[in-house]
Structure formats: C-alpha cells, structure tokens
Design a protein around this nucleic acid. Structure first.
Lengths: 192, 192
DNA sequence: CGTTTGCTTGAATTCTGTCAAAGCAGGTGG
DNA sequence: CCACCTGCTTTGACAGAATTCAAGCAAACG
C-alpha cells in the first residue's frame, strides 16, 4: 500500500528501518472515488495526500460559480492546501478526485509529531514545501508571460500524462481559458 | 543598519544575544540605486535580500521583450529567486531597484552555515519559505479567478503602499494588463 | 528649457468569451 | 442488440473586452 510513497521518500532521503516503521505508523490509506472530495471550500485542510494511484485536482470557485483549476496531481504527486494545512485557516480550495484513487494520508497532529521525532521527515518536508513553491513559481511565470497557445504547449511538453488523462475542459480551466477557446487552439496546432 | 531586519526576526523568533551576534556576522549590507540590478536573468541568484529601505521588483522578460512583474518588495519584505538560490540553477528573473534602496543580504554559503549552526535561523527560514509559498498561492488564486478590475481592487486593498509608490505601468504588468487598460480601469473606478 | 518618463485618450483591430447547436463516444436499460 | 441518455468536445455567429498604434499632455530631470 505504501510502496510508491516510500520509494519516493527513500529516493531523496535514506531511511533506517526503524525510521521507516515510525513514519509508516503515522500514515493512513484512503480510497476515494471519482468526483468525491478530499477537501471542500470552507473546511480546514487536515491532510497532505500522496497519490498512490489515480488523479486529483484542486480548484477555486469564483463568485460567478466558475471553477478555476490550481493544480493536478497524478501518481507520485502530492496534493493539499499547504496554507490551510499549516496555518489551520479555512481553505478557499476544493480538492476532488478525477478518477478513482488511492491515497496515502498524513494528518496535522501526526505531521507535528513526526517533525519533532524524525529528522529525515523534517528534511523531507522542507524539500516538499520547496518543491511546491518551485512548482507554483513556474505556474505563475507561465501564466503571466506566455500566450494561451504557448501555455498549452508548455503544459503538453512538461506534463504529457496530464493532457492525456484529464478532461479537456479542466485543462482549459487550468490554463485560464474557456473549453471552446482551448478546442480552437488545439485545432490550430493540429492544422500544421 | 540591521535594525529592521532583527526587529522582524525577533518578532517571530526570540534570540539570545549570542545567536543574534552569530547571525549578524553572516549578513552584509548593500546600497543599490534606482534601476540597478540585484539579479540578472541568466545568472544564479546568490543572495536573499531583506529590504531595509526602498523598493524592488522581480520580473521576467518574454520573447517579445515585454516585462512581466512577479513580485514587489518594499521595506520589511524579502526578495530573491528562492528557486535559483536553493538549487543553484540560473534564474529567469531579473531583480531591479525601483528606488534607491538599502538591503541586508545573506549569501548561499552563509545561509548553509547558519542553517547548521542556528536552530532559530533554521526555523525562521522554514517560516520564510512557507510565507513565500503562501504569498505565491494568493497571487495565483487572484490571477486565475478574478477579473482585471477585481485584481486591481484586491491589490489596492491588500498593498495600498505599493500602489502609491510604484509606477502605474509596473502595477499593470503585475496584474497582467497593458498600461492603457489599467488606466481605463482606474478611470471607471474613479467615475463612481 | 529641451528631453525624458509616465499617464491618459481615441480609434481600429484582434482575440476571447458567450450562447446555441450539433457531433461523438461510452454506458445503461429495455 | 439497439435505442437512448449523458458527458464532453467541436463549431459557428456574435458581442464584448483587451491590445495595439498613435498622439497629446503633465511632471520630473538634467
């Protein structure tokens, strides 16, 4: 159940068997079905989720009821609202399963405890936040400096899996476009 | 010289006199004049800068030569390309002084050393990255879910100082608009 | 005092969003 | 096995919004 999780973790951080057992004792597993929520807007984000299998997305809903995708997470990725998770403030995001998925979860108290008890976990969390930060920065840069067509090509180049596995209207939302506009962009790109 | 810096730091993190002296021994001060660069695109970002006085911005230049502002930093803010600073990769950002400014700098080796030697500094850095992450997340959310006019009003509400002290075309760039469009939005808002 | 810089305004153009309709799987039940 | 949904994508026509290009103006600067 925790295979991918520890494969990922030990790749960055060598662990003793004891440490692995300690960490694992704080984790839990959750299966979640397509269209179910891991987090709903207005709730506090209580977990960080590692995607063992499946796909999820996080998004906001604006005051016209439209969804705006912030992030996708496929196998091997983490998803959460770190802001809400770390501060305890309510979240403006919703996290939803795109497919039936299997997750490895860690909740806030367990996270606190592990930070104290395991230096490896501590170092790993720093890497995790740094990674999340870097991903967000790339996201911002692409959003503010590229045209819609370039943003789409960038996404295809960087995450080909996502484009294959995620419905197109969610990709459009991620890119800040309407589904119609994305469809036309794809048409233009195909006509070459 | 380091007044604001340590006021900020000790507000979040009580320090012994020894620890303060240790940290201060790794810092340096730099004066930088309007329009001078702290970081140029293609270079590795070697410092994290705390703004004691003045104002800076970071921005990318797209392949049409247009600038896109990622971040502003006034007194009491930090500015850097954390990605480049932490990984050693070259940066796609330029950091430039908007006004004559006074900075407190810490470079990479000093940063490494302090992480090892000072638990307070370590905890502070984690807060710093977390803070940077949260700020970026708010930025993304606003960019993807608000209209240009709403983004502008949000910015004015959140950072009134910035709007007063930074040239309008830079604000426009930050919001992802042309200066003309921002000018018209301001006109509309004033006509009420 | 001439020059530069930044902001505003107008008119034409381009692009994106909106609305509506149709096409196209994949899944379900009769 | 087929007819019928249902969810998703594509297409077209049109309206609306932002960009572009150009010009004018005011304040700051050397």
């Amino acid at each position: 159940m925790y295979d991918n999780y520890f494969r990922q973790l030990t790749a960055k951080m060598p662990l003793t068997d004891d440490e692995r057992a300690l960490i694992q004792s704080f984790l839990s597993v959750k299966k979640i079905r397509r269209k179910q929520y891991l987090l709903q807007e207005g709730d506090v984000c209580k977990v960080v989720a590692f995607v063992e299998k499946g796909a999820l997305r996080s998004y906001t809903v604006d005051n016209e009821g439209k969804e705006h995708v912030l992030q996708f997470a496929l196998e091997g990725w983490f998803i959460s609202d770190l802001y809400s998770f770390l501060t305890g403030e309510v979240s403006v995001y919703t996290i939803e399963a795109i497919d039936d998925s299997e997750l490895v979860l860690i909740n806030q108290p367990a996270h606190e405890e592990l930070l104290k008890r395991s230096p490896s976990y501590q170092a790993y969390m720093l890497q995790l936040i740094t990674g999340a930060y870097i991903a967000l920065q790339r996201r911002v840069t692409s959003t503010i400096s590229l045209s819609p067509e370039e943003r789409y090509r960038d996404l295809v180049a960087l995450y080909p899996n996502i484009v294959q596995r995620v419905p197109q209207h969610m990709i459009a939302s991620y890119l800040g476009l309407t589904p119609e506009t994305l469809s036309r962009i794809r048409r233009r790109l195909a006509d070459e």
